[in-house]
Amino acid sequence: MAATLEVESTLTDRYQTTVPETVRRALRLGKRDKIHYTIRPGGEVVLTRAEAPEGDDPVLGNFLSFLVRDIASHPERLQAVDASFVRRIQSLVGGIEVDLDAALSADDE
């Protein structure tokens, strides 16, 4: 059986607190993630990671969280996008219009 871990945090004058690193790791929390509180009759409060709303793409969310962590950990890896690269991309996709609200065809799903 896994050991129970206990951690503490302090409330500020504005009733805010920092979620301890141990808790963030256990719940796989990243910046801007939501936290769900369950308050039990005896006063015990259970803290869990809030489920993503319907329609949110969990794969995209995980990828974006990965990028946030990687950029924060390795800012030296960031590179400016070269103007010639932008022109090359525009030459490949120039004139193509995309309706992001249009339903995908059966072949595209």
Rank of each mutant, 00 (worst) to 15 (best):
A50E: 14
G95A: 06
L64H: 02
S84A: 15
F85A: 14
G95E: 09
S105F: 08
G61S: 09
V23G: 03
P75C: 03
R14T: 15
R49H: 07
L67S: 05
E6G: 06
D82A: 12
A50R: 10
R28P: 00
V81S: 07
Q16Y: 02
R87E: 15
G94R: 00
A103Y: 02
S91L: 13
D33E: 13
V45S: 04
E6M: 06
V93N: 02
T22K: 01
L29F: 09
A103W: 01
L27F: 09
V93P: 01
T38N: 06
G42A: 09
R32V: 14
R40S: 12
I39H: 04
G55A: 02
H74Q: 11
R24S: 05
D107S: 07
R28Q: 12
T18P: 00
S9F: 13
E54C: 00
T22P: 00
H36L: 10
L104W: 09
P41Y: 00
G61V: 10
L100F: 13
A2R: 06
Y15H: 12
V46T: 11
R77P: 05
A106S: 14
G43D: 12
I39K: 02
R69C: 04
R24G: 01
A50W: 01
D101K: 12
L67Q: 12
D82R: 10
R77M: 11
V93W: 05
R49E: 07
A2M: 09
D108Y: 05
Q79Y: 08
S65D: 15
D57W: 03
D107G: 09
L104N: 11
T38L: 10
V68T: 13
E109C: 01
F85G: 03
S65G: 15
G30L: 01
E76F: 05
T12R: 00
V86F: 01
D33W: 10
G94L: 02
D13E: 14
D57E: 07
V46D: 04
Y37K: 00
E97R: 07
D101E: 15
P20N: 07
V46W: 06
R28H: 06
A102Y: 02
E76L: 03
I89E: 09
E44P: 00
E54P: 14
G55H: 03
G95F: 04
D13I: 08
L100N: 04
G94W: 01
V59D: 15
A26W: 02
F66H: 11
P41G: 05
D57G: 04
L47V: 15
D101W: 07
L64F: 02
D82L: 08
E109G: 01
H74S: 11
D108W: 06
A3G: 12
Q79D: 13
K34I: 08
A72Q: 11
R87H: 12
E51S: 08
A52N: 06
A26F: 10
I96E: 10
D82E: 15
D56V: 15
V7K: 00
S105D: 14
V7W: 04
D13A: 14
V59Y: 12
A2S: 13
V23L: 12
G42K: 07
D108N: 10
S105K: 05
L64I: 09
F85I: 12
A103V: 11
A72V: 10
R49F: 04
I35A: 02
D101S: 14
T22M: 06
